[in-house]
């Protein structure tokens, strides 16, 4: 009762990265609240997911396994989660801010009349004093999230309704296995008790996952180019720098729109969120929508001809100049000093 719950997304029999990241966060919240961590996975052929989920420190894993439950569909997955939450009464429930989590989360929260905070970048336990009601709340979940296009950071709380629900984007939390031999129990739910046949009203006609072969998110160094790079040819310079440093190439939307680089490399609000050790922004002005995807980087180098470019405000190193001159120099002096 009153545990922390994580909804685990399953794609092709694998547990999604974002869910593993949330399990890690969920475990630390549960430790602080001195409660258990529980998880639910819904899909088909889930025999092996237990070994992928429990090592994160999951005490109880609920499985709903049925051929019809894969791929994800809104109504059946909602029905299972709603009923399970009504039975288990978690105090906190976390989901990925993914195409699945953002379809499921609002529906579940509406059915349970519990608040849902979208796209949190930080989750912390804290207290709250309500002056009007003269009431103190302990152990609330502070759900911290950017809003207004990233211009403000709001701390949202959910004092009275349970569960306190939040979604978090992939790459925002770190994942780490607690103990490969962690002992948690698995409960197989009797699916027909949770879903009715009438919930299966959507037929998935076709589906192809365009898996990105690139691993920009996992890369410790990202060399990103913007509209200021000027051409597809000039992007080669960035590829060269990335290769020398052992990183990946990313891009702003303007560079993608201009056709300099593939869409899969877009970083920002409507692209990837990255937090590398080093982010090198080449010819990127640094609009809010771009920064939303990279401002958590540990270090940022901004290379821009405009000394007033907004990206400079969040950069650790500001280089004012032309990328066509500066990038070759970076390659040259990197090679010189590592050999």
């Amino acid at each position: 009762m009153n545990n922390v719950f994580v909804y685990c997304e399953i794609e092709d029999g694998q547990v999604a990265d974002v869910s593993q990241e949330l399990l890690t966060k969920g475990r630390s919240l549960a430790n602080e609240l001195k409660c258990n961590l529980e998880a639910i996975a819904i899909g088909h052929k889930l025999e092996n997911v237990g070994s992928e989920i429990i090592p994160y420190g999951v005490d109880t894993l609920y499985l709903a396994d049925d051929k019809r439950l894969s791929p994800y569909q809104t109504l059946p997955h909602t029905a299972i989660v709603v009923k399970l939450f009504q039975e288990q009464k978690p105090q906190i429930a976390l989901m990925g801010a993914s195409s699945i989590g953002r379809d499921l989360g609002p529906r579940v929260s509406s059915a349970l009349h519990s608040g849902l905070t979208a796209d949190c970048t930080s989750l912390v336990i804290g207290e709250h004093f309500d002056k009007k009601a003269n009431k103190n709340y302990e152990n609330l979940l502070y759900q911290i999230r950017p809003a207004f296009g990233g211009n403000i950071i709001a701390t949202i709380i959910n004092p009275d309704c349970r569960p306190q629900m939040a979604t978090v984007r992939e790459g925002v939390m770190k994942k780490s296995i607690l103990d490969p031999k962690y002992k948690g129990k698995i409960v197989n739910l009797e699916v027909p008790k949770y879903v009715s046949d009438t919930d299966f009203v959507v037929e998935v006609v076709e589906r192809h996952m365009e898996k990105s072969k690139l691993n920009i998110k996992g890369s410790p160094i990202v060399v990103a180019g913007g509209y200021g790079v000027g051409s597809k040819e000039n992007f080669r310079l960035l590829h060269e720098l990335a290769e020398v440093l052992g990183g990946e190439v990313g891009a702003s939307r303007a560079a993608v729109d201009a056709g300099y680089v593939e869409h899969e490399r877009q970083i920002g609000q409507t692209g990837l969120t990255v937090r590398p050790k080093l982010y090198i922004a080449c010819g990127i002005s640094g609009q809010i929508q771009h920064r939303a995807g990279m401002d958590q980087s540990a270090q940022i180098i901004a290379i821009n001809t405009d000394p007033e470019a907004p990206i400079n405000a969040i950069a650790d190193y500001v280089i004012t100049g032309d990328i066509a001159e500066i990038v070759p120099k970076m390659i040259k002096y990197y090679k010189k000093n590592t050999k």
Binding site: S109, H113, S114, G115, L116, T117, H128, Y142, Q143, I152, I153, A154, T155, I156, I157, N158, P159, D160, C161
Partner: peptide, 8 residues
């Protein structure tokens, strides 16, 4: 159910 506690 959700309340904005603070804004930065």
């Amino acid at each position: 159910p959700t309340k904005v506690k603070s804004i930065e």
